[in-house]
Structures are given as structure tokens and as C-alpha cells.
């Protein structure tokens, strides 16, 4: 009985999270554009799927992604092998980014931009190789970002020093990068971190900060995502300059 109540409670919370979008789209459709809602039944089914999906996801976070992230952080910290920890950090960053659908979409758009700007030939072949190169560049930069971020947690450096360096890097690259690539480069920072990566990486950071003596999980544990959204901007502008 209690567990049934918990399920309803969780579903209700997900519905509440979704309510703002439903209200915004409903308001603009009915009041601003003054059009009826098309396919009402299909939309209702879709909303039900979203609510159930969000509920299952949150449950899975607490059962699977958070515990495994923290368990691995503890295991690496107690093993005391920094080299393998950094390898793991790189593999996690690279591996989760290379297959990211949002990144694949952005890379294809970027190839079109490059072709229209005359940077590459407008053939299917060169478009594809440009998009693939960009995807590997971004994945590499996210891998490096997680390595830097994990190293910072181990050393206990204040995050703002590294972020300042990153911001300066972005500004300097903006001066030299071709104008066509800047918009894509800035956007690529935001699209790299997927819904599965974020909880894992966050749990890894917090777990590390918890298991290393003298680190505060709040001050030192967060910040891995911040690096993962900063380095792609620098690397993509670099890619735009080289190719």
C-alpha cells in the first residue's frame, strides 16, 4: 500500500515538472496563435509517456547511476592509483560524448556551415569527414576536460582559477577562429553533456571529494560538467582554424 502511494507521489512530481511546458505550449497555441490543439489523443499519450519516463529515470538514477559512480570513485581512491583514475576519467568523457545524438546533429549542421562558407568542398564525402573530425575533436576535448576536472579534485585547487584560464582561452580563440565556426563552437559546449553522462560524472566527482581527505564534496565535488562544457568551445574553434 505504501509503495503504491510512493509510486503515485513520484508520478505526480514528474507531472508537476512537466506542467510548465504544457501550460506554455497550450497558452501560445490557444491564446496567441489562436489555433486548436491538433491530435489531442496522441498528445495526451505522449505526455503520459514523458511522465512515466521521467519517474523511471529518477528511480534509476538513485538505484544505478549515482551508486555506481560513487562506488567507482571510492574504489579508485582507496586503490590510490591516480594514473588509472585519470584513464577512467578520459574514457568516461570520450566514450559518453562520441555517441551523443545531439553532438552528431550539431556536427552535421557544422559541416553544412563550413561548406557554405567555402572552407570545405560541398561534397557528401568531405561533409562527412568534416563532421566526423569535429565529433572526435569534441569527444577528445570532453575526455580531457574530465581528466583536468578529476585532477583538480585530487589536488584541491579552487575551480575559479581553472575556469578563468578556460574563459581566456575561449576569448583568445574567438579572435583567431573563422567567423563561421564561432556560433557552432559556443553551442557545442552546451550540447556535449548528455542525460546519462551528467549524473554519472557528478556522482564520480562527489564520490572522489568524499573519499579524499581534506576535500569538501560541495566545494570540490562539483565542477566536472563545467570543464566539459568549456573545453569543447576552445577545441572546436581550433578545429575550425586547422581544417
Amino acid at each position: 500500500m505504501n509503495s503504491l502511494k510512493a509510486v503515485w507521489g513520484a508520478l505526480f512530481e514528474s507531472l508537476r515538472d512537466l506542467l510548465p511546458i504544457i501550460l506554455v505550449i497550450g497558452f501560445f497555441q490557444l491564446a496567441v496563435l489562436q489555433q486548436p490543439i491538433p491530435n489531442f489523443g496522441e498528445i495526451a499519450v505522449g505526455i503520459a509517456l514523458v511522465v512515466v519516463g521521467l519517474t523511471l529515470f529518477v528511480q534509476g538514477l538513485n538505484m544505478g547511476l549515482f551508486p555506481i559512480g560513487e562506488a567507482m570513485a571510492h574504489a579508485f581512491a582507496s586503490k590510490g592509483n591516480v594514473f588509472w583514475l585519470l584513464c577512467f576519467a578520459f574514457a568516461l568523457g570520450f566514450g559518453t560524448t562520441i555517441a551523443e545524438p545531439a553532438l552528431i546533429a550539431v556536427a552535421e549542421e557544422a559541416a553544412l556551415v563550413a561548406a557554405s562558407g567555402g572552407m570545405i568542398a560541398n561534397t557528401a564525402e568531405s561533409l562527412e569527414s568534416y563532421a566526423d573530425g569535429l565529433r572526435y575533436t569534441v569527444a577528445l576535448s570532453v575526455g580531457i576536460a574530465i581528466v583536468i576536472g578529476v585532477f583538480r579534485i585530487i589536488m584541491g585547487w579552487p575551480i575559479q582559477y581553472l575556469i578563468v584560464v578556460g574563459y581566456i582561452g575561449v576569448v583568445v580563440m574567438t579572435v583567431f577562429a573563422p567567423a563561421e565556426i564561432i556560433g557552432i563552437a559556443y553551442d557545442s559546449g552546451g550540447v556535449t553533456t548528455s542525460t546519462i553522462t551528467v549524473p554519472l560524472v557528478t556522482a564520480l566527482g562527489v564520490g572522489l571529494a568524499n573519499s579524499i581527505k581534506g576535500r569538501n564534496p560541495m566545494v570540490d565535488g562539483f565542477g566536472l560538467i563545467a570543464f566539459a562544457s568549456l573545453t569543447p568551445m576552445i577545441f572546436v574553434m581550433g578545429y575550425g582554424m586547422l581544417v
Binding site: 496522441e42 505522449g46 505526455i47 509517456l49 514523458v50 512515466v52 519516463g53 534509476g60
Partner: peptide, 13 residues
């Protein structure tokens, strides 16, 4: 959860 979530968004919103 993600499968349901993405498909729901795709179908409805």
C-alpha cells in the same frame, strides 16, 4: 525511462 521520455516528447511536445 529515457526511452519513454524521449518518445513522449517526440509524440506530444
Amino acid at each position: 525511462g529515457l526511452g519513454f521520455f524521449l518518445e513522449g516528447l517526440q509524440a506530444a511536445l
